[in-house]
């Protein structure tokens, strides 16, 4: 299974924010869209960082004024990026190993989506579930 099979059912819209916006605005977007991280993109739509709940927390621990600061100050700049043809299994391994929870997906230089560790684990669970459901459907059938 590939990353594109996850993206296929998530819709094509990616929420982004500009680096000069405030953390307050970013947090409002996170809450509104019920997401844990937001991609930071420049005017031409290029990814320049990612701002996660954790980034906000980490900064807030040292700086009460975190909400007024520009996103660029607080975001993570070293972002691991995925491709639609990446294997879900390998991506899961990398996310757990390197302890990050959101993976922006870029295709031909264009940001096309973002997947979370939750998406990845759900997909793996559904795959296992699928094996079980196949067996169960067979058992129901044989009970005829």
């Amino acid at each position: 299974m590939k990353v594109r099979n996850i993206l296929a059912t998530k819709g094509g819209r990616v929420i982004t924010i500009a680096p000069d916006k405030t953390v307050r605005e970013a947090v409002a977007l996170l809450v509104h869209h019920r997401i844990g991280a937001i991609v930071v993109a420049d005017e031409s739509g290029h990814l320049i960082g990612i701002l996660s709940e954790r980034d906000v927390m980490r900064t807030a621990a040292a700086d009460e004024g975190v909400f007024g600061r520009p996103v660029a100050d607080v975001m993570t700049r070293e972002v691991v990026i995925g491709m639609p043809q990446d294997d879900v299994l390998a991506v899961a391994h990398t996310m757990l190993e390197k302890r990050f929870r959101h993976l922006p997906i870029v295709d031909d230089g264009r940001l096309i989506g973002i997947i979370s560790i939750g998406d990845v684990l759900k997909t793996q669970r559904d795959a296992y579930q699928g094996e079980i459901e196949t067996l169960e459907t067979r058992i129901i059938a044989e009970g005829e």
């Binding site: 590939k2 594109r4 559904d126 795959a127 699928g130 196949t134």
Partner: peptide, 17 residues
């Protein structure tokens, strides 16, 4: 919906969603 992947039973949680 999701692309050509998965066994017969994978379509059950998929359809349920």
């Amino acid at each position: 919906k999701r692309g050509p992947t998965g066994v017969i039973g994978t379509n059950k949680p998929d359809a349920a969603e």
